[in-house]
Design a protein around this nucleic acid. Structure first.
Lengths: 140, 140
DNA sequence: CGGGATCCGGCTTGATACTG
DNA sequence: CAGTATCAAGCCGGATCCCG
């Protein structure tokens, strides 16, 4: 459990307590953090936007409508740190920075989109379920 | 697709503005809400826990360690409303309530787990990427 | 253009207590 | 056991200002 270099990192993934699926991505595991970066509010939108191709900062802001500079910057840093996004900064004037999905990012994007598309296809079911629920219990 | 009852619901899914992937799950779309319920902090853990089989409330609380009663209750309601979870309440004394994944919930769980397992398999890459990033830029 | 730093309001979250 | 109600704290996210 206590390797000097990466104590709670890769070791955790297949550590003793991680046999069960629901434990495999518990908050203790680093993979959970990455999952949140990818599926989070702006993370998924950003990944989706970058899937269309490389993009500059403000162009990205336009694609991911509604995101603030701060949140986009933050999201981008998290994704870059996790190796999902590559940042290409050219020290020209005015500065030009291109963002693009890494191969890893593309893989993740595909899986994420798969889940999303399935959910979209299931929306009729979801919506009717919500209706029943709301009618039965009235509020909330 | 366009029942009179749900104008901005299912219609939105394949509406004009939703051609692009990154727009398909924008905040305007109901599918995005469901996605967040499923991928959210407690949502994913709860779904994962229920994938092991039906479960009672407090048993679930033990499985999803760290969740408060309130959050679990809230999460469960959201998932039930979306048709991912079935709630079986028996009016006995003491009360006994079993939760279990619906067929839809199982499908979603499988796709979610697929993404998660891929991420876990990629953790070595992710971790080394983080190291480079942190070494280069020092702080976060 | 591409961001970092700061401030601040509000929603989310977590204890605690209470009910059936 | 299976929750709901209440309340305070904390983090998230947005707006703004500023720098390179």
């Amino acid at each position: 459990m206590e390797t000097p270099a990466a104590p709670t990192d890769a070791a955790c993934i297949e550590a003793a307590g991680c046999d069960l699926a629901y434990d495999a991505f518990a908050r203790a595991c680093p993979s959970r953090e990455t999952l949140e970066h990818v599926t989070g509010r702006w993370g998924s939108l950003t990944v989706g936007a970058l899937r269309e191709g490389p993009c500059r900062f403000n162009e990205l802001r336009r694609r991911v409508e509604g995101v603030s500079e701060k949140m986009l910057s933050q999201t981008l840093h998290a994704l870059e740190r996790d190796g999902m996004v590559h940042r290409d900064a050219q020290p020209t004037n005015p500065p030009r920075v291109d963002y693009e999905l890494t191969p890893l990012g593309v893989e993740v994007a595909n899986r994420l989109l798969s889940l999303i598309h399935f959910l979209e296809g299931s929306m009729p079911q979801v919506l009717s379920s919500r209706q029943s629920y709301d009618e039965t219990r009235g509020a909330r």
